[in-house]
Computed example of a mutant assay.
Amino acid sequence: MTNPLTRLLDTRGTLLADGATGTNLFAMGLQAGDAPELWNTDAPDRVRALYCGAVEAGSDLFLTNTFGGTAARLKLHDAQDRVRELNRIGAELGREVADAADRPLVVAGSVGPTGEIMEPVGALTHADAVEMFHEQAQGLKEGGADVLWLETISAPEEFRAAAEAFALAGMDWCGTMSFDTAGRTMMGVTSADLAQLVETLPNPPLAFGANCGTGASDILRTVLGFVAQGSERPIISKGNAGIPKYVDGHIHYDGTPELMGRYAVLARDAGARIIGGCCGTMPEHLREMRRALDDTPPGARPTLERITAEIGPFSSASDGTGEDDAAPARRNRRRRRA
């Protein structure tokens, strides 16, 4: 049987994904440092509102509020024993929203990085990573997620561990990395590396691509890098709503709905088939992205010059794939999808 995501791709060709999780939950009252996943049980109506915001804006799929749902991340909030519960309920709330809609929707179970560094650089073993991802995957499966959605990954070792865990859970999946260091992930992975990595996995993802990173221009350059590898798998592009800036004591993303609409069209023309937003992307951005995708006929693949002319300059001169581009030093950094 085909996955609901594959069926929807076959029907629509290009899908609109959702936007930010953290940005929207902060607007609803989530405090910095709190675990959004705890809201699945403590504030379920707000989590439903998060999902409904994307659906009402026109998204074809949305991610569950489970990004930090591994035992390693939940341990920071003394909730490591609630992995199955919090992930199951996060997916159940999504299932409720999707089943009540008047059109087919895909509930994607969000799985973020563990926040730990894997061997041989760090202490996290492959077996422990697989166990943590498997535990989370089982909860999302029990809650009714259609597909698992690995995101914001930097290390190929963690990508492989998650893929193995998802196979153990018997779940289809999608996977994205975050290219935020001159066209590379924090661990030095390039767009070409990821496109090649997914083809080596025993259970490759239904779709792969990039999320988060720096700005919309950079992620489009990364999408072009995926396309250059000739992969026939659907490509995902979930870029931030512009560039983060510190304004009046909080982080503000400067991307307007109009900019994100142009980004969505450019992403489609660049070769992405699943297009959404990440940090800073609110329902008003998604509505304009939906309108732009529906009203703008497909065009030629954009050049780098057209991308910068329409939505702004790249954050670095390099896309990370040149022979002279040195991989960044590995470092430990915890990240939450905002």
Rank of each mutant, 00 (worst) to 15 (best):
T2K: 14
T2A: 13
N3I: 04
N3R: 03
T6N: 06
L8I: 06
L9I: 08
D10M: 09
L15S: 05
G19S: 07
T21N: 14
T23M: 10
L25H: 13
A35L: 11
P36M: 06
P44C: 04
V47F: 10
A49F: 13
L50C: 07
L50W: 12
E56H: 12
A57T: 03
T64I: 00
N65A: 05
N65V: 00
T66V: 00
G68A: 15
G69W: 01
Q80N: 12
D81C: 00
D81A: 07
V83A: 04
L86H: 01
R88Y: 00
A91L: 00
E92M: 11
G94K: 02
R95I: 02
L105S: 07
S110N: 13
G115K: 08
G122N: 07
A123M: 11
L124I: 03
H126G: 05
A127C: 00
A129F: 01
Q138L: 14
V147T: 10
E151M: 03
E157G: 13
A162R: 03
A165S: 04
D172S: 13
M177K: 01
S178D: 06
A182K: 11
T185A: 02
M187L: 06
G188C: 03
G188M: 02
L194H: 15
Q196L: 11
T200Q: 15
T200I: 04
N203W: 13
N211L: 03
G213Q: 07
G213K: 01
G213Y: 02
T214A: 06
S217G: 02
R221G: 04
R221L: 07
R221N: 07
R221P: 01
T222L: 11
L224E: 10
V227L: 08
Q229N: 06
G230S: 08
S231G: 12
P234E: 08
K238E: 14
K238F: 00
P244C: 09
P244D: 08
D248A: 15
I251G: 04
H252K: 09
Y253F: 15
T256H: 09
L259Y: 09
R262I: 13
D269T: 02
G271V: 03
G277N: 05
G277S: 05
C279I: 03
P283A: 05
P283Q: 04
P283M: 08
P283N: 06
L286V: 03
R287A: 13
R287Q: 14
R291Y: 14
A292R: 11
D295S: 15
E310K: 01
I311N: 07
A317L: 10
G320Q: 10
E323M: 09
A326N: 10
R337Q: 10
